[in-house]
Write a protein that binds this DNA or RNA. Sequence first.
DNA 1: TGTGCAATGTAACATGCGTTATTGAAAACA
DNA 2: TGTTTTCAATAACGCATGTTACATTGCACA
Lengths: 255, 255
Amino acid sequence: MSSASLVWKLEQFVRLSPVDHVILNRAATERVRHFAPRVDIVREGEKPKDVHLILSGWAYRYKQLEDGRRQVVSFFLPGDICDVNVFILREMDHSIGTITAVSIADLSREFFDKVAAGHPRIVTAFWWETLVNAAIQREWIMSLGQRTALERIAHLLCEIWLRLRLAGLTRADSCDFPLTQGDLADATGLSKVHVNRTLQELRAEGLIVLKGKTLSVPNLDRLMRAGLFNPNYLHMDHEGRQLDAVRTSSDVAAG
Amino acid sequence: MSSASLVWKLEQFVRLSPVDHVILNRAATERVRHFAPRVDIVREGEKPKDVHLILSGWAYRYKQLEDGRRQVVSFFLPGDICDVNVFILREMDHSIGTITAVSIADLSREFFDKVAAGHPRIVTAFWWETLVNAAIQREWIMSLGQRTALERIAHLLCEIWLRLRLAGLTRADSCDFPLTQGDLADATGLSKVHVNRTLQELRAEGLIVLKGKTLSVPNLDRLMRAGLFNPNYLHMDHEGRQLDAVRTSSDVAAG
DNA sequence: TGTGCAATGTAACATGCGTTATTGAAAACA
DNA sequence: TGTTTTCAATAACGCATGTTACATTGCACA
């Protein structure tokens, strides 16, 4: 339980000082809370007093209509921050729930004020996090509006894969994958049945191996093509570092 | 051509000082540019040097797939700001194009630095703008994933109506509406033909009157119900002011 | 080491929306 | 004022995806 994934991720983008590391590590170890799988962390209508940093586990943000229809609007992976600066709005317009067991650190308003005052690198890194999240939301709109079922799921899997890798959470060609087909359905706007059909199709084409909470992607480049996936929206290319990583893996896959 | 819509909108949320007004007005009158209808202001892949404030006219943000499929991911109305703090990312992951003739003011990095240093009310107001935009993106995901064609269009019309009203751009029960059915199709992920069918349906039920670039909403409350529209995500209720306005109009409609 | 419940898999059938095509009505423009 | 182009309207037909139903697998926990 530490800020490892967060720091690892942010460092791809901004070089943080040793003092920055200390600040982040301290914030990530004070005021930690643990949640069981499949429970709500925050509910629509509430006014949270803190920002949440995911230390371990997967969670999602979701909205619901009066009649029960439910849409996942984003996934939170280790190292993700839920809504930098919710301090401004009066109440939540969505809920946040856990998928697996989750540990979070609560980041106070005072923490952000301190960072804003004296740690510009962290401020920049948090802005990056915020802007990338906004870009991801836009890409989801693109997926839901224009991509077919197969493209949508392939795209989502690519996104999760790259985000996990950025946080240092993938192995050679596999990763933990705790989402159920129901979760995928709620995130892609498809029915569970059709998600199942589409996963079969992806399997049949050898694009994924998905079994028992583990996902393998034998050839990321092919999966990316199937999902019309363009990694630019993840903005992993600052200082040239992460983009190289993406290119390398694609080249390896293609070669 | 002034900051009127922006200031009007922000003031619903934060009380700005006379000095704040001067700052915003000056920023909105220096470095103004004009664009024709249906042209691009910024293209995917570019690195803009400024943030843009829409002074007049309508625009949209859109993304395109390699094969031409196109999705509008948000609309910009007068008073809207395009991406506070794009300074951080290396390049645009989407394009911005005009719908009508548009005037914009370019806001420089120096302007934002100055505001950040000495005008906390404006900073708060800009944060509000940013967070509300993120909330709107989430609600679009909800629409595209879960709402039917009729609900989607009704919802979008409600949103545009309330945003226009917040900027002071509606009359009693009508407003300018320059979107074509093709624009609505690109924004809702529906085909033009089905948008047409659905508009007919909304008209037949007396929910809207839409003719020649003018939209009338005889009964906002009914339209909101048709779109399962819950205004909470627009966060217009800080200091209790705007929420009252919404309630009043709903009550009038219902009574 | 059962036993129950959640998750996955599959089949048959229904439908909301997409596609293609054509026409008329407005704008834009020369 | 005619000519061209865009936009709106409508019809016929097709398909991707939804719905309902039920069987199977697998895992949590007694």
